[in-house]
């Protein structure tokens, strides 16, 4: 019984979390105000776009919102995204985006790293630039 209760709690959290992700808005955030359309965001997270002017962009994946992001922006599965980066890295010598595990961590990373861009499902507070909402 003592092991069932946490499992039920976790299952409820998972269900609630999944429902929250499906219903959520997706905010594309960057360290500074830059102009990127949806195609530009796609290229950024696929390693095709690395600069805006002289600014080096640093994509940061947020695993808490990644399925939403992959579906809405990149239109690809997590498996294909992973393989695409292996191929990209293998061909072009660039590393895949760093990964954080929550909106709070994504916000913290974007605030801290010049050129960083990520995505969150909660409306971001101050300190980051929202360049798109999907």
């Amino acid at each position: 019984m003592s092991r069932i209760a946490p499992k039920l709690l976790l299952a409820t959290a998972l269900f609630a979390g999944g429902a929250a992700v499906r219903a959520a808005d997706l905010y594309i955030i960057c360290n500074s105000q830059i102009s990127l359309d949806q195609a530009g965001v796609r290229e950024l997270f696929l390693g095709e776009k690395q600069f805006v002017g002289a600014l080096k962009l640093v994509p940061v994946d947020n695993s808490a919102a990644q399925s939403l992001f992959l579906g809405r922006v990149l239109n690809m599965s997590a498996e294909r995204y992973s393989v695409a980066w292996v191929k990209k890295s293998f061909r072009d010598g660039i590393n895949p985006p760093g990964v954080v595990g929550s909106d709070a961590e994504a916000l913290a990373s974007v605030r801290r790293i010049p050129g960083a861009c990520s995505y969150v499902t909660t409306p971001p507070a101050t300190g980051v630039a929202v360049i798109g909402r999907l």
Binding site: P6, K7, L10, A13, L14, A16, G17, G18, A20, V21, S63, A64, A65, Q66, S67, A78, G101, S102, D103, A104
Partner: peptide
């Protein structure tokens, strides 16, 4: 609450994998 929510969100993408391993990991 934020931590609990993030805990709930993080493994959703992989929930289809082996349940026992997932539950152990979640615990």
């Amino acid at each position: 609450l934020a931590l609990a929510t993030s805990l709930g969100l993080t493994p959703t993408a992989h929930a289809a994998e082996d349940d026992k391993a997932r539950i152990t990991e979640l615990e």
